[in-house]
């Protein structure tokens, strides 16, 4: 049974990560720095619960806010460049944060045991869950409470005026600007919100694995974050969730016998999908086709 709870935990964590990139992608920006923002939340929340012995929930919020602040600061200069240059800038920034943690040492000795992040060795013993006697099921439920809150918040945002504004900027930023939308505010807000969600996800992730190191937040993780909303199509949040389930459950777990070749498979899957279904597996077209099948209409009736 623990296997399925573990599965549930991974899907929940990756949903949070995917939605953090979803918000930014709505404005037409591809951020490859989500793994970096996630690592900020992870390290800071971990340090707060382990070194300052804080409770998890305030630590998570502080981790999220810290990541949001960094994302906001990154947002400004990064917005001077568009499109593909932004991809390069965010990749470089993500790697910058990763190398920062690789060089980051802050340990205190408590009761003869050294605690805290230790450069390349990583940050061990983030034992909030085991110390408070949480079972796998408890942790899974907790992750899904957080994920559920994030899903609800993003879904509500998407349907409100804010969502329309983000999409308007994503569709055509010049047209949006002519309609009186302040592009800088919108883009930086999207970055900040995405950073907060990623930081929140990172702080949960750190406590879930109990051991984080800089390699957890490499380019593979950044690719995971951005590929979910792309595969899911940008029509709504549920596409992203379906994409997480598709990648994490179907692709990586069902095909687990392939063992170490999973990264290879992940890369190959991206190539195949981008060639054959470039607008995502669950794009608006596919969604309307499915809807058409269920309501008995002919295919393409409302395409």
């Amino acid at each position: 049974m623990d296997f399925y709870f573990g599965m549930l935990q991974i899907v929940g964590l990756h949903t949070i990560l995917g939605l953090s990139a979803y918000i930014i992608l709505l404005t037409g920006q591809v951020s490859m720095a989500q793994a970096g923002f996630m690592s900020i939340g992870a390290y800071i929340a971990g340090m707060l619960t382990v070194l300052a012995e804080m409770h998890l929930i305030p630590a998570m919020l502080i981790g999220g806010v810290a990541a949001a602040l960094v994302a906001c600061i990154v947002g400004f200069p990064a917005l001077r460049v568009k499109g593909l240059m932004l991809v390069v800038a965010t990749i470089a920034f993500g790697e910058f944060i990763r190398i920062f943690w690789f060089n980051f040492d802050y340990q205190i000795s408590r009761g003869g045991v050294k605690l805290g992040p230790e450069g390349g060795e990583g940050f061990k013993q983030i034992r909030f869950f085991p110390e408070n006697g949480w079972s796998t099921l408890d942790v899974a439920i907790f992750i899904w409470v957080v994920a559920g809150a994030v899903i609800a918040a993003v879904w509500w945002m998407d349907r409100s005026r804010a969502g329309k504004v983000l999409r308007a900027v994503g569709e055509d930023d010049l047209a949006a600007q002519s309609a009186g939308i302040n592009l800088t505010v919108v883009k930086v807000s999207a970055f900040t919100a995405g950073g907060f969600i990623a930081g929140l996800g990172g702080s949960v992730y750190a406590h879930y694995t109990t051991h984080i190191e800089h390699l957890n937040f490499d380019i593979v993780m950044a690719t995971f974050a951005i590929i979910y909303p792309i595969l899911g199509g940008l029509s709504n949040v549920f596409g992203t969730i379906l994409a997480v389930i598709f990648v994490q459950v179907f692709l990586l777990e069902v095909l687990r016998p392939l063992g170490d070749l999973r990264n290879l498979l992940f890369g190959a899957m991206i190539i195949v999908v981008m060639n054959f279904m470039p607008h995502g597996l669950f794009s608006a077209q596919v969604a309307s086709r499915i809807k058409g099948v269920f309501s008995g209409r002919k295919e393409g009736a409302n395409a």
């Binding site: 591809v30 499109g83 593909l84 991809v87 380019i219 593979v220 690719t223 951005i226 590929i227 792309i230 070749l261 990264n263 290879l264 992940f266 890369g267 190959a268 899957m269 991206i270 190539i271 981008m274 060639n275 470039p278």
Partner: peptide, 17 residues
């Protein structure tokens, strides 16, 4: 351009692996 961008990132991960 997102399609070719993501496809090349996929290739990058594949080559790395």
């Amino acid at each position: 351009e997102l399609a070719s961008l993501m496809a090349t990132i996929g290739t990058l991960l594949m080559v790395d692996e």
